[in-house]
Design a protein around this nucleic acid. Structure first.
Length: 292
DNA sequence: AAGACAATCAACCGCCAGTAT
DNA sequence: TATACTGGCGGTTGATTGTCT
């Protein structure tokens, strides 16, 4: 019996991730972990992506404490050594290199180290001696060539809260609890918006884009999703800006929650995603109460 | 300046192992 | 025990970027 695909490829978005999608995925995973199931995560988060794609994006790009590029000589040596020992066990090799992903190591090997390794073996020279993995790892971690001002990041796992959304969100069965959960989510979303806004307004990113990015999960259910331009960047649909106008006071300063207004239907649909069993009508009613 | 080619790397594909039912 | 499902892995692809002619 053949396996069923993990997702309907005709219905999921493929290709490069937009900043908005990254923002949605990051905020969701940082709050809920993978919600116990990567396959179901895109639906809960309001992403039109395959669950596997979400997992890969998180692990290889969005996860905290990742380092990209700039492999040190010590890391080169370690990779060469470990490859000589175990071959293409990229996940194992990557686990010895703090902040590196198996995909990074694999790419680096295929583009750089493979040639060096081939040349070395062709000269009949043995691969770098496996002189005690831990010592080599320590040497890699203490590498000064990564930049004097950049201490080796600790190999800390992502601080995820594996919140059981099945019990937390999917079993909301009365309006009071629904309202309570909605208020919690609303407050957290607003906090996230303000946090991202204050963090990025100094970099010149428009506050509207920040707010829209943070709330972009609402587009997916309201049919107003950003579209990718030919160069891969995202284009902001006009109605998104209309749905997320900044306050009249605006200006990148501090904003009160009430100074942001959202498309109620899109917001409600997003809550429906999060709350699972709640009907859209219930969620919309909650939205109306929240806006009062 | 423009086209060809090479290098890079994010993302996808398909398989396998572990686990739940 | 059999089956279905999910997570994880390694291999590969293809778009983008950089370099060379």
């Amino acid at each position: 019996m053949g396996r069923s695909p993990c997702c309907d490829k005709a219905k999921v978005k493929r290709g490069p991730w937009s900043q908005e999608e990254d923002a949605i995925l990051r905020s969701f995973v940082e709050r809920f972990g993978n919600a116990g199931n990567w396959i179901a995560l895109p639906h809960k988060a309001g992403l039109k992506r395959c669950g596997k794609s979400c997992r890969l994006r998180w692990l290889n790009y969005l996860r905290p404490a990742l380092r990209h590029g700039g492999f040190t000589d010590e890391e080169d040596s370690l990779i060469l050594s470990l490859y000589g020992e175990m071959g293409s066990k990229w996940s194992v090799i990557a686990s010895k290199l703090p902040g590196r992903t198996d995909n990074d190591v694999k790419n680096y090997w295929n583009t750089k180290l493979k040639k060096r390794y081939t040349a070395t073996t062709r000269e009949a020279a043995p691969p770098p001696p496996p002189t005690g993995g831990d010592d080599v790892i320590a040497a890699a971690e203490d590498s000064p060539s990564q930049g004097a001002a950049q201490p080796a990041p600790p190999p800390t796992p992502p601080a995820l809260v594996n919140l059981d959304t099945t019990s937390c969100l999917d079993t909301v069965d009365d309006n009071d609890e629904l309202l309570h959960k909605s208020e919690q989510l609303y407050a957290e979303l607003m906090g996230l918006i303000d946090q991202q806004s204050s963090a990025t307004t100094t970099t010149g990113e428009s506050a509207a884009a920040v707010a829209a990015a943070t709330t972009s999960s609402w587009w997916s259910s309201s049919g107003t999703s950003p579209t990718a331009s030919s160069d891969g960047s995202s284009l902001w649909p006009v109605d998104v800006h209309d749905a997320v106008p900044l306050s009249e006071s605006g200006g990148g300063g501090s904003r009160s929650n009430s100074s942001l207004f959202f498309d109620a239907h899109a917001f409600g649909a997003s809550f429906q995603h999060m709350l699972g069993s709640a009907s859209l009508d219930d969620v919309m009613l909650t939205q109306e109460l929240l806006y009062l």
